[in-house]
Design a protein around this nucleic acid. Structure first.
Length: 697
DNA sequence: ACGGATATGACT
DNA sequence: TAGTCATAT
């Protein structure tokens, strides 16, 4: 829940950084010839040329859109370059993009608390850094100002022609009598410009950013001027911005809630929301959402930047549309094996690189069923404790699938056998691992953290370890955990917690086959028999572990979850802010590709060999809950009208883009009438609210 | 026959 | 807790 910051609401400096058509950039870095050409990344291509999942800005000019088919894109842009997403184990493999995202995070996390929001987006809390800069090297004393900073877009700033633009931005940035909040944002703009340049130098990727007093505004701003630009939202421009902003452009309001607002309350812009009292909104949408909406209408949000550089879960899935639906148990088993293999590999990598362990395995699937009264019932999700080791994961996932299938089919017992079956089909499958926590530091039994087995792992190299921030303490995470050793298997882990480096981390676990404790359900599959007790065994699972090695490569990260821990990146770095690179700008970077800036490429792709489907073995159990569905959604209205791309925002969007190697030449900002904005900072937030409520005293 | 593969967070 | 939904890209 949002923690109230004392004092003056939002004088925080928050930034949202968004990579520009990221997958395309990753492919263009790999194949420089593609730079500057209309390009798109497609996954699979057998059917209509594949689906586009990223489109370069050059291609967008031709009307190419995400979610077009490759063939379609060729129609509007015949020269478009289509690059396929790597495929491994018969499915799309996004690891190269994940790794590239990590490279970026490791750079962006240098100046303040950083939250990895997705594979290509992060939020930064630059408050401390901005304050330090303001105190030690405020903009007004700088003589040289980075080009990139001058190219910032400042909402509400009146600047007519292009020449004038930079000059007025410069004035705004360096104004001596500015509101303190504006000065902080100005510092944020400097810091972000520098970070973006750093990202460019080290990774060759461009990104766009928004700098504002809270996350939601920063996010909104980052999408306003793309690619390769940054936008600042001064406090005084907030009202002007929101008043005319289409409600659905606001994060979280792009779906059903936004539809409901429009159709049920006639709210079309965020400004329209102002007419409703908090009570009114709460009565219709619930306490938390109501308060959240009331705050959002005023540009208020107390949502904090989390301080998390790593993902909270890992998943691997695939869809099997229509004709490809899986209709035999064997095919399901085959795909589950592939998916689990990928998942296991990623988990092992996470363990090796970040010293984290996932505790829960979840299986999701979607299925259809013909002629059955409740043929609309959804295929239930199932989960169980996660045991490390590819084979174990495969086995457990299969068991979960069986349990779910039985439940899905209900009394409808089919005793079909081998091949086909006319009753059901699986149209998507996915396995994921969640509840990932850092391994305890110290020698205490780590064993316990492995619910079982560590497979022998071929610890892959680790190249990019983000989070190198050398923070050494994992500590607090489990101070509370009592340790209980598993009799019989002593595992010693030497792995110093403090001397953060040379640990030979190595977990020597006993080898073993040791069957685990999970009670097994004997049911093989619904083809061969129908009753299967799904026992819910207690939970501890035994273990036996094969051996595994933990690599060095530290990664530090705050313990996830909310163990209030002082943010790590927080230390002050005396902002030498701008200085050194006086005039380096992103534009220039591309103009004169300075070879010296070339980053070291990392080897990111790897192939995996196939695996033969091992004999299946039932294992796990799951708490089979009988899920009754009583889905009541307060917002039932459905209004599938899609707002294509995400760029653009109401009256504030105003730039033209002219490309040149992925860089845009910006245009002017349109003047915006800004009325002073009086807000009432006296609404409290409801802790734990669904949509995090705003706070600010 | 779909936008696919992921991911996060809230609610019950 | 587990499982479902909503949202986003």
């Amino acid at each position: 829940m949002p923690v109230a910051r004392p004092e003056t609401s939002d004088s925080r400096v928050i930034a949202h950084v968004d990579m520009d058509c990221f997958y395309v950039q990753v492919e263009q870095r790999k194949q420089p010839d593609l730079r500057g050409l209309p390009t798109a990344v497609v996954q699979y291509n057998a059917w209509k040329g594949g689906a586009l999942i990223a489109v370069s800005y050059e291609a967008r000019k031709y009307g190419v859109k995400r979610s077009m088919r490759g063939a379609e894109s060729k129609e509007v842009c015949p020269q478009i370059q289509l690059v396929q997403v790597p495929v491994a184990r018969g499915k799309a493999d996004l690891s190269t993009y994940r790794n590239a995202g990590s490279e970026v995070v490791s750079i962006l996390s240098r100046k303040g608390r950083c939250e990895r929001a997705s594979i290509d987006e992060v939020y930064l809390d630059l408050t401390d850094a901005a304050e330090t800069m303001l105190a030690e090297a405020p903009p007004e004393i700088l003589e040289v100002i980075d080009e990139e900073v001058l190219k910032s877009h400042v909402l509400g700033l009146n600047s007519e022609d292009g020449n004038d633009a930079k000059e007025s931005v410069r004035k705004w940035l360096c104004r001596n009598d500015a509101d303190r909040r504006d000065k902080l944002l100005a510092c944020g703009a400097f810091i972000i410009a520098e970070l973006r340049l750093q990202v460019l130098k080290e990774t060759e990727f461009t990104c766009s950013a928004g700098i504002a007093h809270n996350k939601i505004l920063a996010k909104l701003a980052s999408g306003m001027n793309k690619p390769a630009q940054q936008t600042v939202v001064p406090f005084s421009s907030v009202k002007g911005l929101l008043d005319s902003l289409p409600i659905k452009k606001m994060k979280q309001l792009g779906g059903k809630l936004g539809d409901s607002l429009q159709s049920d309350l006639g709210v079309n812009t965020v400004g329209d929301l102002l007419q409703f009292s908090e009570e009114k909104l709460q009565e219709r949408y619930g306490i938390n959402t109501g308060t959240w909406l009331w705050n959002i209408a005023r540009g208020i949000s107390g949502d904090e930047v989390e301080g998390r550089l790593l993902p909270k879960s890992h998943g691997s899935g695939k869809t099997f549309p229509g004709p490809q639906a899986l209709k035999t148990f064997a095919s399901v088993q085959h795909w589950l094996h592939e998916l689990c293999q990928e998942l296991s590999e990623r988990l092992q990598l996470d363990l090796d690189q970040n010293k984290r362990i996932a505790h829960t395995l979840v299986l999701h699937a979607t299925a259809y069923k013909v002629s059955d009264s409740d043929s609309h019932k959804k295929f239930p999700s199932k989960s169980c404790p996660l045991r490390y080791g590819t084979a174990k994961i495969q086995e457990d996932a299969l068991s979960l699938f069986q349990a779910a299938l039985r439940e899905y089919l209900g009394s409808y017992t089919a005793k079909i056998q081998g091949s086909q079956n006319n009753h059901w089909g699986i149209t998507s499958l996915s396995v994921s691992a969640s509840k990932i926590v850092p391994i305890p530091s110290g020698t205490a039994s780590i064993t316990k953290y492995f619910h079982g087995h560590l497979s022998c792992s071929s610890t892959k190299q680790s190249q990019n370890n983000l989070v190198e921030e050398g923070n050494e303490s994992y500590s607090e995470v489990n101070v509370t955990k009592p340790q209980i050793e598993f009799p019989g298997e002593e595992t010693m882990i030497k792995y110093a917690e403090t001397s953060s480096d040379q640990l030979e981390d190595k977990i020597d676990l006993l080898n073993d086959q040791n069957p685990c404790c999970s009670s097994k359900n004997q049911a093989r599959d619904e083809f061969t028999q129908e009753t299967v007790p799904v026992s819910t065994s207690g939970s501890e699972h035994c273990s036996g572990m094969n051996q595994s090695q933990l690599m060095k490569n530290y990664s530090g990260e705050e313990p996830c979850v909310k163990l209030s821990m002082p943010s790590l990146n927080r230390q002050e770095q005396k902002r030498k802010a701008v200085k050194d690179k006086g005039t380096c700008s992103i534009l220039r970077f591309f103009k004169n590709q300075d070879p010296s800036c070339a980053p070291q490429k990392l080897e990111l792709v790897e192939n995996i060999e196939d695996v033969k489907a091992p004999p299946l073995s039932p294992g796990i159990q799951s708490r089979s809950n009988n899920c009754l569905d009583h889905n009541r959604s307060e917002l039932s209205k459905e209004r599938p009208e899609d707002a294509g791309d995400s760029n653009a925002c109401g009256s504030f969007q105003m730039n033209k883009e002219g490309e040149e190697h992925g860089v845009t030449i910006l245009m002017k900002l349109t003047p915006q009438s800004l009325t002073s904005y009086h807000q009432k900072f006296n609404k409290k937030c409801v802790p734990g609210s669904g949509l995090k409520s705003g706070i600010t005293r």
